[in-house]
Nucleic acid binder design. Structure first.
Lengths: 218, 218, 218, 218
DNA sequence: AATGAATGAGCGTTCATTCAT
DNA sequence: AATGAATGAACGCTCATTCAT
């Protein structure tokens, strides 16, 4: 009898298993489709690929936008997580920074929805996933700054914008010159090194504070 | 009879004049609209602004894409021309390079169609206008290379891709951080200076030859 | 075994109690929602408010229409009952008739489902509840007729149709001219008084017999 | 040559013939369908019946509501016109009033969209067509008032609301008791006669002025 | 018997492209 | 050659009803 109780409890929540499976199928299919085709896809295509009806899709995500944001959150999060892991594994701070760009760009260049929506980094910076990504960069920035290897005055936002910028370059050259972006990355990273001491132009941003002003001592 | 002849001739050639005028009106209106709203505009809007009917528009440009390409050709050309002029006026080669980016990004960041279609730079590199732009960059590259101020190994394509890349950054930050891209530009330009001598990664492009192989002495 | 029996019995009958409770909850919620929003409501809203799942709702009422009819039966019944009570309480027959309309229209003008479905009065006259309402009117009619105050030839159906008709007027003017229907009521009631002795047009109804033909002697 | 000019002018407007024909076909089909099924019809059904594509329909009426309003305007107008004609033809003012109701109700009882939207009479009283209808009633009211046959204090709005009210009754009884509404009409008209001198309840309407207060001398 | 997730036809609307005039 | 009306497939979304648990 005592054993039966948990079973009952479990049974009560049983129906949701399918719903969860469906939700996951939808998100998975959407992630796939969005990565492939960008946010302009027909919702029906997502429904088709996930094997559910329109109603099911709309039960879980009342607006197309909701689904898109969910997927973006997830994708940005995953991206941030793997980047974070790589940062931890890296030996010296500069390598961490370098590897971060390398991996970030290698992995997500083909993700159309991510690239399309990288603009959100600035317009909706508090989207979960984007914030995570920002935190990773913030840490990379702080560490590289602390070693004195990073050019003085470089901020998290600078590094983030560089990522967005290079991401676009990667996407654009992906088909015809798949490795070319590495050259641009190298150039940019060199420009970020501490042997450049000329101050960067100020950008008098009203609301987004520069995170690391004066952090790096030298 | 003598009177009829000119009439006939006039009748036959008059339409041509109209046709040309119409074509120009369409392209002009399209340029305006595309710059403002990007390629997602309704074709009707272009027809409306140019003062012609849909049929006329489609007679001249059987696909929307044809019109877009035509406009892009023109816009890239104009861009290239003004850049060329600026390059000529510049005193030293490095300033020429710097000014080029400055002006290009300042002026075209809000040209939505250009920014959207900068990808064509790589997928359709022989589009007239893009080629012109490329030639300007090629010259800037050569001159800066010749002075020894440019990092060895930097190619025209590198500079072009940098332009595309920064263009995207400008566009994305235009609303919330309008001047921020200047920082990125500075960083990139510093990375392009000759005090960086480490070789750039090779990019083994199959079809588009690196333009300046062997240009840089070291 | 003796213990098992009641258990089994309990098990068999327990659900019934729940079922009845559920059914009532559904009807109650539906009555509320239908009165508020009319028959165009989403069935989900009813399920939500009654606290049951869609399956349960549809087990009890296989079609939305079934539920609507059940609720209407109930609402018409209640209406009839309170009208009946008021009729009993009234002193003279003419006041009874007058008060009936006054109260009926004041109370049910905002009952959207009732107003929407008053047509059922004629198309489904044997719907329980409607019949009850009809009986009340029949009695009012008979009593007023007996006193000689009611215009000769006026039938229960006339009075019922007048109610429907005025009900619609009330509903329509509820927002902008909330008391205007009283004027129409007054006019109609005056037209129903016995000082009008011209015979009313015949209506040669094939199936629904006029209830009070020749009832009023004078 | 002078003769050719008008021809040319005519030719310039020629293409519109089809458009006008289509627009008319759409309105006609819509009028038909709306009368039959009310405003809930699928726009595709209207397109189908009028023999045009969806695009054509939406070119002429950018929103479904636009088409519906156009049709209602037209239907109300026609109704008003024929009522006006009948009013002119009538010999004495009281017969004019009587005939107006008779014809109005006979002709439009089956017009579902009209009946559905009669509420607009109060919420959107300035819809062309409704205003026309109101003017006709206003005149009927004034004339009947002037003869002293109309009950003192009766306003245009009273007569209009009576029309709406009876219209609903007609619609509801149309299938099972098609002539029954005549009895209600008779009753109401008798209530409107001048032998009823008790003042009608006031309705303290804030914005819509009572048109004929104290107009009738007797 | 109860749950609520799943279904899918249908709705109002848009827009690149075609075609009669 | 020019016009702009016509086309219809496709889109985002809703909701009465069914079905697996």
């Amino acid at each position: 009898m005592a054993v039966a109780e948990p079973e009952n409890t479990a049974r009560r929540r049983a129906p949701r298993v399918d719903a969860i499976r469906n939700r996951e199928a939808i998100v998975e299919a959407a992630a796939e489709v969005l990565a492939e085709q960008g946010t302009a896809v027909d919702v029906r295509e997502i429904a088709r690929r996930s094997g559910v009806g329109m109603g099911t899709l709309y039960r879980h995500f009342p607006k197309k936008e909701d689904l898109v944001h969910t997927v973006l959150r997830q994708d940005f999060s995953r991206w941030a997580e793997s980047a974070h892991q790589a940062a931890i594994d890296a030996e010296d701070p500069w390598a961490a920074l370098t590897d971060f760009y390398q991996q970030a760009l290698t992995g997500y260049a083909r993700h159309r929805a991510i690239m399309e929506n990288f603009a959100l980094t600035w317009s909706v910076p508090d989207l979960e996933g984007i914030q995570q990504l920002r935190l990773v960069i913030e840490e990379l920035c702080a560490r590289a700054g602390a070693t004195g290897l990073l050019r003085p005055g470089v901020t998290t936002d600078d590094l983030l914008l560089l990522l967005v910028s290079l991401g676009h370059a990667v996407q654009i050259t992906d088909e015809c010159r798949p490795q070319m972006w590495n050259r641009l990355l190298r150039i940019s990273l060199d420009g970020l090194r501490a042997d450049h001491r000329e101050p960067l132009p100020t950008d008098t941003a009203p609301d987004v504070p520069t995170t690391h002003d004066g952090l790096s001592p030298n």
